[in-house]
């Protein structure tokens, strides 16, 4: 990306894979960061024009407005099923879904489990912010124990509402998946690691090795009722102990495609 113009070196500019449209996300929401990382990876791999994204329902429902490549909108939770169909019909296209925890881990649980179990050659970008952001901050399947939401005003009572679902761990136990990792967006170092993981996930798909998923811990300043900076601290102090950052399944052959 580094290029020279008139004695000035361009170090960073807005990726080409993002459109000129400003996002509707709240200030400080790391959805935008995740969008940017996906766009940067598509730019670096030079696959913007051969990529098809599948948008979910949730805050990122308008993802098709923000990405400068082909996009389709799926019914709530059904993005992996739709991606399966697209990838099978157009196997040379890069197909990925971009989903949140309310979409993927709740209503879309059936679709994601079976797409992963079949080892579909798709990539799933899964943002986990432990809350339903779009509808006003209700408890989601990944809400932390004792975390206050609008539907659990006294905190999530695990006796009544159960425990958080760790999707990356669950998916990684399926035989057919190739690459399942969890990353976070709470500081620059982890943002860079997330970008690397997103790239590896796309490379996994490009070399036909099957299902890849990156779970990304994300913030929701508005519904967590914290400032954007405090939200990042919340990820680090509260979410990471419950959702550890780790590589849960990495096909040994992935080492060979890197480089």
């Amino acid at each position: 990306m580094v290029s020279e113009t008139n004695n000035a070196t361009l170090v960073y500019e807005r990726p080409e894979s993002l459109t000129e449209m400003p996002t509707f996300y709240c200030p400080g929401c790391t959805h935008g960061t995740a969008h940017r990382l996906v766009a940067e990876v598509l730019d670096e791999m030079g696959i913007r024009e051969t990529t098809i994204g599948v948008a979910p329902v949730g805050c990122s429902v308008f993802a098709y407005n923000y990405f400068n490549h082909d996009y389709v909108e799926a019914a709530h939770g059904r993005a992996p099923a739709m991606a399966t169909g697209i990838k099978r019909v157009l196997p040379k296209k890069m197909v990925y879904t971009y989903q949140g925890d309310g979409d993927l881990a709740s209503i879309g649980m059936g679709e994601i489990m079976h797409a992963a179990a079949r080892g579909e050659n798709i990539t799933v970008i899964y943002l986990n912010n432990a809350i339903y952001g779009m509808t006003g901050g209700q408890m989601s399947p990944t809400t932390l124990p004792n975390m206050k939401t609008t539907s659990t005003p006294l905190g999530r009572d695990v006796e009544v509402a159960g425990y958080p679902i760790r999707m990356a761990e669950i998916i990684s136990n399926l035989d057919a998946v190739s690459y399942v990792v969890r990353r976070s967006l709470h500081n620059p170092a982890n943002i860079r690691k997330t970008k690397k993981a997103v790239k590896t996930a796309f490379q996994t798909q490009a070399s036909g090795m099957g299902f890849s998923m990156v779970e990304i811990l994300s913030s929701c300043p508005t519904n967590w009722k914290l400032s954007p900076s405090k939200s990042l601290e919340f990820i680090e102090e509260q979410m990471i102990p419950v959702y550890p950052i780790a590589d849960f399944k990495v096909n040994p052959e992935i080492k060979n495609i890197k480089g």
Binding site: V2, S3, E4, N7, A8, T9, L10, V11, Y12, E13, R14, P15, L18, P22, T23, Y25, G28, C29, T30, H31, G32, T33, R36, A39, N187, P188, I191, R192
Partner: peptide, 26 residues
């Protein structure tokens, strides 16, 4: 210094970062 860490954390890709070419050669 043009380290671009601000651009790495920016959720809205609002920042463009430049550095003097003399120091950083492509």
């Amino acid at each position: 210094t043009g380290c671009a860490i601000c651009a790495v954390v920016c959720p809205d890709a609002a920042l463009t970062v430049y550095r003097e070419a003399k120091v950083k050669k492509t």
